[in-house]
C-alpha cells in the first residue's frame, strides 16, 4: 500500500483529499500546518508522495518544500504543491524549488488523483 502525506491548514480540504485517497487504497497521514508537518516529518516513515499547500500559518509550503528537499531522506520523494489560482508566480516558484508538480485550487479531485498516480507510476 502506497502512503501519502497531506499538509493543508483547511480541515475540509484535508478531509476531502483523505477520503478520496483512502477510497483509492492509499494510506494517508495529514498535518494541519507547516510546523506540525515538520514535527511529523522528523519522526514518521518516509511516504511515497507528499502534498503541500502553499499558504499556511507558521511555515508556508515553499519553506516546507525547501526543508524537505534538504533532508537526505526526502530529497527524492515526489512533492505536489497546492496553489491558489490567483498566484500564478507561485507555480513557477514551486517548480523552481523542486516541486514535482502542482495543482491549482479549487481543484478537480479526479485531476489531482491522476497527477498523484503519474508521480507514483
Amino acid at each position: 500500500m502506497k502512503s501519502i502525506f497531506i499538509v493543508d491548514d483547511d480541515e475540509d480540504i484535508r478531509l476531502i483529499i483523505q477520503y478520496m485517497l483512502e477510497r483509492e487504497g492509499y494510506q494517508v497521514t495529514s498535518a494541519k500546518d507547516g510546523k506540525h508537518a515538520q514535527e511529523l516529518m522528523s519522526s514518521m516513515e518516509k511516504p511515497d508522495l507528499a502534498l503541500f499547500d502553499v499558504m499556511m500559518p507558521y511555515m508556508d509550503g515553499f519553506e516546507l518544500l525547501g526543508y524537505a528537499r534538504n533532508e537526505s531522506e526526502w530529497d527524492d520523494t515526489p512533492i505536489i504543491m497546492l496553489t491558489a489560482k490567483s498566484q500564478e508566480s507561485d507555480i513557477v516558484r514551486a517548480l523552481d524549488n523542486g516541486a514535482s508538480d502542482y495543482v491549482v485550487k479549487p481543484f478537480k479531485p479526479n485531476e489531482l488523483l491522476a497527477r498523484i498516480r503519474r508521480q507514483l507510476h
Partner: peptide, 11 residues
C-alpha cells in the same frame, strides 16, 4: 515578516 507574507489575501 514571514507571518505577514502568509496573510490570506489575493494581492
Amino acid at each position: 515578516i514571514h507571518a505577514m507574507l502568509q496573510l490570506d489575501y489575493d494581492e
